[in-house]
């Protein structure tokens, strides 16, 4: 379950970057293919780790990056889902990098946005009351 410790580290970082009074709606995570992160396990870990934290009720948007392959024989470089393939020149390419594990953004509702939503809701409630 390394997904759980990743979720916990992620929550700590989000806490650092979340504007005061804002509500976190979505957290964007990018993981290289070497990390062996499973989306289902990661989502489950997120459900377990977030209650009572700044990330409570937020969505985790995980993007697993493809392998970057480099053929040292002909210099070709490309991205692909499979690591065990043959280059068009006939040689076997090597994977490069692939161990990223990055927070790439946070979607929040700021205090102002929350206040705005609230007043919109109030307006539409009173409009509805008038119409009736």
């Amino acid at each position: 379950m390394h997904e759980l410790s990743i979720a916990e580290s992620l929550i700590d970082i989000v806490k650092e970057h979340c504007p005061a009074g804002a509500v976190v709606q979505a957290v964007l995570l990018e993981a290289g293919p070497m990390r062996g992160i499973d989306n289902e396990a990661m989502q489950f870990a997120w459900q377990c780790a977030t209650p009572g934290t700044v990330c409570q009720n937020s969505r985790l948007e995980l993007r697993i990056l493809p392998w970057q392959l480099l053929c040292s024989a002909c210099g070709a470089q490309w991205a692909g889902e499979d690591i065990y393939v043959t280059c068009k020149c006939g040689q076997t390419p090597c994977p490069v990098g692939g161990n990223d594990l990055k927070l790439t953004g946070i979607d929040v509702l700021t205090a102002e946005e929350l206040a705005q939503e609230e007043s919109n809701a109030r307006v539409s409630r009173s409009e509805r009351a008038e119409a009736e």
């Binding site: 970057h17 594990l101 946070i106």
Partner: peptide
Amino acid sequence: MHVSVVQNVLKLND
């Protein structure tokens, strides 16, 4: 609002 940050998740461990 979108807060754009790019940060290594395991920064503290590292």
